[in-house]
Computed example of a mutant assay.
Amino acid sequence: MEDEAWQGTEFFCGNHPAPFKKKKHQTRGAVQIPACLSTISRGAWYEIGLKTEIELHIEVCEECPMKEAISRLNL
Rank of each mutant, 00 (worst) to 15 (best):
G43P: 00
A18W: 02
Q32F: 02
A30Q: 06
P19T: 14
R28Y: 06
Q26V: 13
Q32L: 09
K22W: 11
S41A: 06
T27S: 14
G29M: 05
V31P: 02
F20D: 08
Q32E: 09
A30W: 03
Q26H: 15
A18P: 00
F20C: 08
G29E: 03
P19A: 13
K23W: 06
L37V: 07
I33W: 06
R42I: 01
V31A: 03
A44L: 08
K23S: 07
R42A: 03
G29C: 08
A44V: 08
G14C: 14
A35V: 04
R28E: 00
K22H: 14
H16K: 00
A44S: 11
S41H: 06
S38W: 05
R28H: 11
K24D: 07
P19L: 15
A30V: 04
A35D: 00
Q32I: 05
R28A: 07
R42H: 00
N15Q: 10
Q32T: 10
P17R: 07
K21A: 11
P17E: 15
A44T: 14
T27C: 12
P19R: 07
K24H: 10
V31E: 03
T39Y: 10
A30F: 09
P19V: 15
A18S: 11
K24I: 04
P19F: 13
P19C: 14
K21G: 04
Q32G: 02
G29R: 09
S38E: 04
C36K: 00
G29S: 05
H16L: 06
L37E: 05
A35T: 03
G43C: 04
H25S: 13
G29H: 05
S38V: 04
I40P: 15
H16M: 08
S41I: 02
A35Y: 08
L37R: 00
Q32Y: 07
N15C: 00
P34Q: 08
V31L: 07
Q32P: 08
S38P: 11
T27E: 13
T27W: 15
G14L: 14
K23Y: 08
R28S: 03
A44P: 11
T39L: 13
K21S: 09
I33G: 03
H25Y: 13
K24N: 09
I33Q: 03
G43V: 07
T39M: 13
G43K: 05
K22M: 15
R42W: 00
T27Y: 15
P34E: 01
N15R: 02
K24Y: 08
S38Y: 03
K24T: 05
H16W: 05
A44C: 10
T39H: 10
A44D: 12
H25R: 15
Q26E: 15
F20S: 05
S38D: 04
C36H: 06
P19I: 14
P34L: 01
I40Q: 01
P34C: 01
H25C: 09
A44G: 07
